[in-house]
Amino acid sequence: MPGPRRPRQGRPHLTSSEITLYTSRHHGIAALVSGDNYRWARTALQLAGFEKDSDGNYVTELTDIDRARRALTTLGETARACQAKVTATDQRYIGDFARDLSEHLPGQWSVRVENYALQVWQGDLVACLWTTGPLLHTLEKYRVPVAAILRSENGIELAVVQTPRHDQYHIGAIFPKEIYLDEAVTPPSSITVQPAAVPAARKVSSTLLADYHRAFFQM
């Protein structure tokens, strides 16, 4: 009698991975990845010719239109091979907003964009926050795949995320390093701003940074 039938060997099943493409004034096209198999999404971007920026995210410049077109065309092929979904969005790239905002804040600020490919990674940001209010609520309740971190020349760090409706931004403080946490001191509350950089910077300066300095000196 014939033996038991062996299962057919095929390609391993991959769980979800997604690539979201943003048009960026600073980077040309910026790609963020998400999903359990985010490494396959990154592989698809590498094979298509996207390059890592200083934050570790994948970008392709638009200064060479032909090269960018080839990268996007190739990405369609490599993404299919890696079983990654590609989505182009008209949402503003959060790095662009953060850089515009930083230019209108007092002092010198640097900006980095953090891509949380897995939902658990955004918990790392929650653990670093020194704030209350809408930013903390959003990170604890909703999927937030990306945040911008602003750092001042004095070491102050602020976190920026888009609201769930994507038409506003929440901004809150990150706990200052090398300082004792006094739980009796009320942390600075996070704020919500409109996407216009100038009024957003005014609100950050007059409200969030003022509360930050108050709480910092109390500690």
Rank of each mutant, 00 (worst) to 15 (best):
T23A: 08
T43C: 02
W40Y: 09
P4R: 10
S24F: 02
A30K: 10
D36V: 11
A31S: 05
G28T: 00
R5S: 05
H26K: 06
S16K: 15
S16E: 14
Q9T: 13
Y38M: 13
D36W: 06
H13K: 12
Y38P: 04
Y38N: 09
P7S: 10
H27G: 01
L14S: 07
A31N: 05
R5A: 13
L45D: 02
G10M: 11
H26T: 11
T20Q: 02
T23E: 07
I19K: 06
R11A: 12
H27Q: 14
P12G: 08
G10T: 02
R8D: 01
A31R: 02
S34Y: 08
A30Q: 10
R5C: 02
G35Y: 08
T20F: 01
R42F: 03
W40S: 14
R39N: 11
T43D: 11
G3C: 07
L47W: 11
S34T: 12
S24I: 01
S17I: 07
L21I: 15
L21K: 05
I19C: 03
R8E: 05
R42N: 11
A41H: 03
R8L: 07
G28L: 00
R6S: 07
A30C: 06
I29W: 01
G28E: 00
T23S: 10
Y22M: 03
W40V: 11
S16D: 08
L32G: 04
A44V: 04
D36L: 12
A41D: 05
A30E: 13
H27V: 01
G35S: 10
S34L: 08
A30S: 08
H26P: 00
R11L: 14
R6N: 03
E18P: 00
G28S: 02
L45H: 02
N37M: 13
H26Y: 12
T23N: 09
P7D: 09
L47I: 02
H13A: 15
I19D: 02
R11Y: 06
